[in-house]
Amino acid sequence: MLVAGRIFFFLSAIIVSSTSLAFKVGLVLDKGGKDDKSFNTSAYNGATKAEKELGIELKYVEATDNNSLEVLHRNFAQKKYDLVIGIGFAQADAIKKVAALFPQTQFAIVDGEVKANNVRSLLFEEHEGSFLMGAAAAMKSKTGVVGFLGGMDIPLIRRFQKGYEAGVKYINPKATVLNNYIGVTGEAWNNPTKAKEMALSQIGKKADVIFHAAGASGSGLFDAAADKKIYAIGVDSNQNWIKPGVVLTSMLKRVDVAVYETIKSANAKQFQGGVIRFGLKDSGVDWALDQNNEKLWSALEKNKLNEIKKQIIAKKIAVPDYYVTK
């Protein structure tokens, strides 16, 4: 039974792999899954855009736990996928191992750094974007108190927090920043109820603009902000549409662009390993302005924010980076 199953499996694998000649891309999503409306969704959108426009063959999977990551990458490589993309810092170790075993396969990782010839690391300068959000929050705050809601207390989110605090102080040195983290386990990325409670308690302490970096938990903040008529700031994807008029802006982290560009260059046989950093300068990190939040911003405020952005790009404003300073 087992042997027969294996033979059948083997044959079918051969048939499948020999019939399709398109460039094959495997996408390994983080535990958050493709519908988190934030980080993973962004990556998924970038990959599906590439599927439509470039005619590549795309297969995506979602990780069940840390150990399964390595298996998923291995399987993709064994099935002769041309490019395998890992989404999220947790996949760095798995990619490091598998990339060494399969030097012919190209790998890419978002948010993590792996040093190998066949791996491209896609990193984002989140602190720059958060600084801009801090400045925006301080400009719009009437009470001088603003809030920050982090998902899980991990270095990546501390990086958001530190940039945000610096941005607030840049506009208003006397402002108070309230910091809260939603949880201590992975559940924190998907707990809107608790996010809402924390947002309400921050509002109780007079916060009138709150920025979240908490994945799918963020929807709780948007509800609280709409109830209490204050402003919220979204993260990763453009979340302005979720509550128009309430969401002041969103800190865009263009994972979709990074993924799309990587697939495009690999498809054109121009894949190169190494680190690529996306920051304000190449719009890899940015603030979102569209029809949903246009009315909230006067021309003067827009100019001021864009001016700050220019100064960060020109390195006239030094943004503290948690990874460097701790």
Binding site: A90, A92, E113, D153, I154, P155, L156, V184, T185, Y323
Partner: peptide
């Protein structure tokens, strides 16, 4: 369960974080 995992997270990030990695 919550108390112990909260302690584990706190201890990892504040006392024992791997300096060569961005992962918690």
């Amino acid at each position: 369960n919550f108390i112990l995992s909260a302690f584990a997270t706190w201890f990892t990030i504040n006392r024992l974080q791997n300096p060569n990695s961005q992962n918690p």
